[in-house]
Amino acid sequence: MVSLYTDLQQVLDSDIVTLNKAIAVAEAESADAGLSMLDTLDLDGYHHLHAARGELLHRLGRNADARAEFARAWEFADNELDRGFLARRLQELTEQV
């Protein structure tokens, strides 16, 4: 998947493609590597970025930071399905404290 996103970047270099590539990198390599890529993006206010950051931070054991990212994602989400998912993730992380 990482190589496919690398190929796609040659044709369409956008922050959204990089976000998706970062998720693939996190799965193939490490959460740290994916998070480093996400940190380069200028997508503040895009709930998918905050949700992805929240998930990777959670995988790294940084649950307070993960909760903050999921809360930001919830603020920016524009539909009830996404907001419901994000609310459940927030609840799960709160229960793990």
Rank of each mutant, 00 (worst) to 15 (best):
Met1Tyr: 03
Met1Cys: 03
Val2Asn: 05
Ser3Leu: 13
Ser3Asp: 10
Leu4Asn: 13
Leu4Phe: 13
Tyr5Cys: 02
Tyr5Ala: 03
Tyr5Ser: 00
Thr6Lys: 11
Asp7Phe: 08
Leu8Asp: 00
Gln9Trp: 04
Gln9Cys: 01
Gln9Ala: 04
Gln10Tyr: 08
Val11Ala: 10
Val11Lys: 15
Val11Leu: 14
Leu12Gly: 02
Leu12Phe: 09
Asp13Lys: 05
Ser14Gln: 06
Ser14Pro: 08
Ser14Val: 02
Ser14Lys: 09
Ser14Phe: 02
Asp15Phe: 07
Asp15Lys: 06
Asp15Gln: 10
Asp15Met: 04
Ile16Gly: 07
Ile16His: 15
Thr18Asn: 09
Thr18Leu: 03
Thr18Cys: 01
Leu19Ser: 02
Leu19Arg: 03
Asn20Glu: 11
Lys21Asp: 01
Lys21His: 01
Lys21Glu: 05
Lys21Thr: 00
Lys21Gln: 07
Ile23Glu: 14
Ile23Lys: 13
Ile23Leu: 11
Ala24Asp: 05
Ala24Cys: 14
Ala26Cys: 06
Ala26Lys: 06
Glu27Trp: 05
Glu27Cys: 00
Ala28Leu: 09
Glu29Arg: 09
Ser30Gln: 07
Ser30Gly: 08
Ser30Met: 10
Ser30Tyr: 10
Ala31Leu: 07
Asp32Ala: 08
Asp32Glu: 15
Gly34Arg: 04
Gly34Lys: 00
Leu35Gln: 00
Leu35Asp: 01
Ser36Glu: 15
Ser36Pro: 04
Asp39His: 03
Thr40Trp: 07
Thr40Glu: 04
Thr40Tyr: 04
Thr40Met: 03
Leu41His: 00
Asp42Ser: 05
Leu43Ala: 00
Leu43Cys: 02
Leu43Met: 12
Asp44Tyr: 09
Asp44Arg: 13
Tyr46Asp: 10
His47Lys: 05
Leu49Arg: 07
His50Leu: 00
Ala51Asp: 10
Ala51Gly: 02
Ala51Gln: 11
Ala52Leu: 07
Arg53His: 04
Gly54Tyr: 09
Glu55Ser: 09
Glu55Pro: 00
Leu56Cys: 01
Leu57Pro: 05
Leu57Asp: 03
His58Glu: 14
Arg59Pro: 04
Arg59Val: 01
Arg59Asn: 11
Leu60Met: 13
Gly61Ser: 11
Arg62Glu: 06
Arg62Lys: 13
Asn63Glu: 15
Ala64Leu: 15
Ala64Tyr: 10
Ala66Gln: 10
Ala66Ser: 13
Arg67Met: 12
Ala68Pro: 10
Ala68Val: 09
Glu69Val: 00
Phe70Glu: 09
Ala71Gly: 12
Ala71Lys: 14
Arg72Gly: 01
Ala73Leu: 02
Ala73Val: 03
Ala73Met: 08
Trp74Lys: 15
Trp74Ala: 15
Trp74Asp: 12
Glu75Ile: 05
Asp78Phe: 14
Asp78Thr: 06
Asn79Glu: 14
Glu80Gln: 08
Leu81Gly: 04
Leu81Asp: 15
Leu81Asn: 13
Asp82Ile: 04
Asp82Ala: 15
Arg83Trp: 13
Arg83Ser: 07
Arg83Tyr: 08
Gly84Met: 07
Gly84Asn: 15
Phe85Leu: 11
Leu86Glu: 08
Leu86Gln: 14
Leu86Trp: 13
Ala87Pro: 12
Arg88Trp: 12
Arg88Asp: 15
Leu90Asp: 13
Leu90Tyr: 14
Gln91His: 14
Gln91Lys: 15
Gln91Val: 01
Gln91Asp: 12
Gln91Ala: 07
Glu92Cys: 11
Leu93Phe: 10
Thr94Ala: 13
Thr94Gly: 12
Gln96Ile: 14
Val97Met: 15
